[in-house]
Design a binder for these strands. Sequence first.
RNA 1: GCGAGCAUAGCUCAGCGGUAGAGCACUACCUUCACACGGUAGGGGUCACAGGUUCAAAUCCUGUUGCUCGCACCA
Length: 885
Amino acid sequence: MPNLSKSFPQVNGLDLQSLPKNLEFKEVEGRLQKKWSDAGTYQYRENDSRPVFAVDTPPPTVSGSLHVGHIFSYTQTDILARYQRMKGKNVFYPMGWDDNGLPTERRVQNFFHIRCDASVPYEAGLDLPPILSTMTEKELEAKKIPQRSLSRRNFIEHCHKLTVEDEKLFKKLWSDIGLSVDWNLEYATIDENSRRIAQLSFLDLFQKKEMVQVEAPTLWDTDFQTAVAQAELEDREIPGAFHDVEFKVEGGGSFVIATTRPELLPACVGIATHPTDERYRALIGKTAISPLFGARIPIFASELVNPEKGTGILMVCTFGDQTDVQWWREQKLALRQIIGRDGRLQPVTFGSEGFPSVDPVSANENYEKIKGKTVKQAQKLVVELLQASGALKAPPKPIQHAVKFYEKGDRPVEIMTTRQWFVKLVDKKDKIIEFGSKVQWHPEFMYSRFKNWTENLSIDWCVSRQRFFGVSIPVWYPLDERGMVDHSRPLVPSKEQLPVDPMTDVPAGYREEQRGKAGGFIGEADVFDTWFTSSLTPQLGSQWELNPSRHKKIFPMDMRPQSHEIIRTWAFYTIAKAMLHEEKIPWKHIMISGWVLDPDRKKMSKSKGNVVTPAQFIDEFGADSVRYWAGLARYGVDTAFDPGVMKIGRRLAMKLFNAGKFVLSNSAVEGTVTEPLDLAFLSKLKVQAEAAARSFEEFEPAQALMEMEKFFWSNFTDTYLELVKSRTWGDKTGVEALQKKASAVHASRFGLRVFLRAFAPFLPYTTEEVWGFDFGGEGSVHLTSFPSAGDFEGIPEGKTVSFDAAMAALSAINHQKTLSKVSIARPVTRLVLKAAPISQEALLPVLSDVLGATKVEHLDWELDSGAALNEFSVIAVEYGPDQKA
RNA sequence: GCGAGCAUAGCUCAGCGGUAGAGCACUACCUUCACACGGUAGGGGUCACAGGUUCAAAUCCUGUUGCUCGCACCA
């Protein structure tokens, strides 16, 4: 059916001299970035009937520096986004900046050498230079220059000032690496839209009574002086010691407890032992007297006590750990808060109502010595006092133990009673797990981390932070006639008012003059946990509550890329929020990227000093090469950083560039692909293209890249292009020669188009550059479609076995030339080839191409039915004269 | 303590029931007219270990060891 065959128009080959000699990636990258930006190549089209593919891009924490890990995971996301765009999707691919929160505050403090103090008045127009531009950190330290105190508003202004600068650097890098982000969709988690939607989220949860304000024991970081959430804790192994402390029992007797926190002795409110422990059974129900402070303390039994641990009997303090909180609630024990918000022991008076003592005088004498000290100092002093009093029964036994820290903090977290806002999650753990299971996890096993974490969740999500640079909690509290705050009746704004800052805005029904006055109101000073906003990234993009039609199109999003260490925070909270708000999942797929490890397979971290910055590698190898390295890694698998892989990427880009030039330099008359080798090649290419698309659909682009690269290299450049050279070389005359040449030229050009489109998601610069040499009239390669079987319609199927035969025969003859130590270009006057008859049959249709490429003038066969299919061996060879001679 | 992942050539990694793979590195050869940031070929592995299932196991199952990671406990 030759009439149905796809016909290709006449081609005028490009003049190789007019094309660049080498791929100058720096120049190409700059030029193409501008081209894409000017043309709006990657724009999301709001009013468009194409199906949407929405990416929930992670807003990076703007902390001043990026490392190769960022490039790695963001590029992997970009590769998928580019694929989807080429599949005809209207890609929604935003970029956000997570610019509020503690890391930013800390960085701003150091950068400008400032601190926030709410009592300082606002100074209009204050614009401080970065301290480090005038002084080194060492000088600062040596001169002991104190941080300058700034009003809250001035402080926030400086936060904005620095983050804007940082964002520029990030944006430059994202552009350089070729992210196909739509920069019209840029947002920041502190911008007005984000604040509005975060506060809408608050209102929704508040109305649903899932957002509650509670005064309760809370995890507290004494350095940052803020409440923190369970998800932000981490264990650290630190040295400690068991101290054996003797307690007297009222009515006679004594027992010894082992504690690692003797400094909490003044906060001891109970003694617990296991109900079946014979050693202490007689004590249950009696009252103990604490050493040094003489407090009367109830002794009770609890299954939670491990008789094997310590001495099998322990003291309950307010609060040493989470179990203390549980015992305190169950046993309705007294509350004796001795550690203040700053981590120092606050003043208390023994003999007063809260702190009873059988000997208040010596209790206060003892407490006086530790009052105002840090926890660490107090511990040392208490041990000395215990020793002096004889209550310390043995020298401290040093141990290494895991202690909970706020992940960004330097001292262990304390548990103390404060008033905070919580999102109720513990009561719906099962449902959250169920919603999490509806999301497709890549790789699948990462779901178990989510499940594991959710199952073990024990504290509701504390979302209030006693910080400054964040989204305000949109609440005011009325003040009664005496000026006392009434927390039980929070005043919330209406949706239309949002976003509000309760410190400057006024609740409905009040006037600004009533702020802080009896009968008036006060604003909530706290801000939200940054995760409270970040957990809404899909809704920030879809304009939830603000733009219902857009929300409907974009939400749930298609995919969320992120790293595994924030499954328990970002992924977890986002799933929980979508469930609480709309009973939906936030996205269909979640892609968990691996970590980039240093060459010694250690995690890169600032403290280890093994962080590698990406810019130098983009400079050295080109963006496409760095992308190649990222694209080759599978999801969820940690990868050792290896610039060697980038070198390979560069090799591929170069090869694509050169092969492209070569293919495009050939001319051809109008015609169809007719030659058996050409048809066989295209048939193989079709199979490969389909496999690549399949890998993408399975979220395994690395597989697609690997296979396509291998095929491109071995089948296309090393085999096919070599084999057709004899047909395309020089000026051909005669209808048949021209037609055979046209077949090869059309097939190789067609093949090149397939390769360029298949590599486009990975190597956007190189593919676009080569595309532009001759196909540029059709616009950007990135707006074409990803190769599919449909492209091959009208091209007859070829015999792939013939292609394989040609490849094998070529290899066998080349092998012989290598053994003979002659040039591959050396003519062969006679060759005897041994092969099975089936192999001969396979080779015959493409024989002329093989003989042409190997310069064999005369071939004789030696048939051997014992040989395997396409097993060719050279039996005899006679070389012609060396042409260079 | 519970859970997850990984273990394949010197290195980085594919393969995940049917004769051990790629690239790098290494060796030899080829100044070949798209590409020396090339090309052609070559050497190199009892697929961590021990059992089991199977006609057949790097691949499936069980156990062991080692390395990562997550969670819990942390008096």
